[in-house]
Design a protein around this nucleic acid. Sequence first.
DNA 1: TTGTGAAATGTTATTTTGTAACGGTAGAAC
DNA 2: GTTCTACCGTTACAAAATAACATTTCACAA
Lengths: 133, 133
Amino acid sequence: MRHRAEKTQDAVLSVLRNQHGALSAYDLLGELRQSKPTISAPTVYRALAALCGAGKVHRLESLNAFVACKDDCHDEASILSICDDCGAVEESVAPHILAELSKVAGRSGFATSRHVVEIHGLCAACCDGGTRA
Amino acid sequence: MRHRAEKTQDAVLSVLRNQHGALSAYDLLGELRQSKPTISAPTVYRALAALCGAGKVHRLESLNAFVACKDDCHDEASILSICDDCGAVEESVAPHILAELSKVAGRSGFATSRHVVEIHGLCAACCDGGTRA
DNA sequence: TTGTGAAATGTTATTTTGTAACGGTAGAAC
DNA sequence: GTTCTACCGTTACAAAATAACATTTCACAA
């Protein structure tokens, strides 16, 4: 098989896509071991690094966890909204806001190469639940 | 002594303030051990949690590291610009951008409680150095 | 002052997260 | 098929964070 790693990456992506929220690398490892018991941490991390590089997976820095990218086709960094109640993660794309962030940082001569934007709070479903319950 | 922890917090803050860039909790632990050899990880983490809660220290989620807050007096979340070359961290305050982020997330009913905004790149000094060198 | 209880701190030990480094294996070229 | 190369997988370890428990401190009453 020419691209051995692609199978691992596909498996990782498949697990993440079937997931409501984010998974830590070790959660993922646990899932993957169900079908491939010998798989180990660095294999998973390498697959994740490749997928992140390809924009198919986002790393949640504030959770040390990973989600599948919903759109799969944007180069811009995403704004990731993380529900602290149910763990759901939403992606938003808003290049003009990122540009503005770069501009603010640039006031002191800073040259941006990467944005990390994560928003914590409650998703619509959990807000409603919280309000009504 | 009534507030034992305050001394630890003061020591932590003092180390962070004398630092050019961010420090990991364990870097900090190493520094602190020079004057108090028995200090251990949870002590440092608790001090950091208290200081973060008080807004005197920022946690860099994308680095697992900590910096002293420069301003010491703003309630808004900061925009943290991290130089990937020299490690310098700058803080910017731009409430309207954070509000806009909340608005974008809110389009799907998401209710924001906390912003994590970190920008990676090169600070002015390292840009110049890179260009000229 | 001294005993008692509540609250917060300090410590040990462990869990979780992430990676270095090496050995093995698949595929390419011939 | 053989050899060469590059990539992959594994073991073993390092770094980051925390759970759980022991200890200390302070407040208050007698």
